[in-house]
């Protein structure tokens, strides 16, 4: 059990007339090695929740356990927590500041107080993981393309060797190719490095084929938690929240409504193709 969130509340402007729940009684357990999609529209509380996981925001009440230990315990090292739970913000390229790519990636490990050798080894490993070779090391991060900048920023977090990696809308503003590249990279990190991944997104379609579990947030509350196919069964409720299920879900339900009994578990284009062909050949 990597992260356990217990009865978490976050209230803005408590005890004033402006009082507003950003998070309301959230309970969530994230196991080691999971690949989770955290879905919700703007203002649903999903970004607020992720910022609690590495201690950037403090809950009004409730508790968060990391590997069984409360992060709100007195003397708990936030610095260590932040290196274990890596958070990649939306548009992470906006945090780049060093003169070259390599130095920028070194920033994280340097803050951890590691030896120069260790810092450089980690930076190299991280850049290798995101697919940037040595020819990039001495380039200015500001002269790279949008997708490359984002890779550098992700490497900057990976260099801290996190056990859990949270990515907030990592594909925002990218074109379809850039989006597939980044999501492919995240999938590789999960498979090859065995990093627990929490992918924050407002697009069901983008994450459905990668994640094994979806958590849906709405108005500060956790509303659904399960496998993609379980969650997509609630496509009508999702739509009411301003979240659309993938088009395939609609096709499946429309066909079923017409008496064509295609399995409800179908969520991706490939599964739909196979199911429909099976029915067609019959």
């Amino acid at each position: 059990m990597a992260i356990e969130i217990k009865n978490l509340n976050h209230i803005y402007g408590q005890d004033t007339i402006f009082q507003q729940y950003a998070l309301k009684n959230v309970n969530l357990t994230i196991e080691d090695g999971e690949f989770i999609g955290l879905i919700g529209h703007t203002g649903s509380g999903k970004s607020t929740l992720t910022q609690h996981l590495n201690g950037l925001l403090k809950a009004t009440d409730g508790d968060i356990l990391y590997n069984g230990e409360s992060i709100y315990r007195e003397g708990y090292s936030m610095k260590t927590l932040r290196s274990k739970v890596g958070l990649v913000f939306q548009y992470p390229e906006h945090q780049l500041f060093e003169v070259d790519v390599f130095s920028d990636v070194c920033f994280g490990p340097k803050n951890l107080g590691l030896s120069q050798d260790e810092i450089e080894t980690r930076a190299k490993e991280a850049l290798d993981l995101v697919g940037l070779d040595e020819s990039f090391y001495k380039q200015s991060p500001f002269e790279l393309s949008g997708g490359q900048k984002r890779r550098v920023a992700i490497a900057g977090v990976l260099a801290m060797k996190p056990e859990v990696l949270i990515l907030d809308e990592p594909t925002a503003g990218l074109d379809p190719k850039g989006r597939d590249d980044i999501l492919g990279l995240v999938e590789k990190l999960h498979k090859e490095q065995n990093i627990t991944i929490i992918l924050v997104s407002h697009s069901m379609e983008d994450v459905a084929k990668y994640v094994s579990r979806l958590v849906v947030m709405n108005q500060g509350e956790k509303v659904f938690d399960g496998t993609p196919k379980d969650v997509f069964r609630h496509y009508k409720e999702l739509e009411a929240m301003g979240l659309a299920a993938p088009q395939i879900t609609y096709v499946v339900h429309a066909l079923r409504a017409r008496g064509i009994m295609i399995s409800e578990d179908v969520t991706t284009v490939e599964e739909a193709r196979d199911e429909i062909l099976k029915l067609w050949r019959k």
Binding site: P176, Q247, I248, V251, R273, I276
Partner: peptide, 15 residues
């Protein structure tokens, strides 16, 4: 050209 198509279009094409 590194572009997507909507899921229904892709499904129809594969079928």
């Amino acid at each position: 050209y590194r572009l997507d198509v909507p899921q229904v279009t892709e499904l129809a094409d594969e079928l």
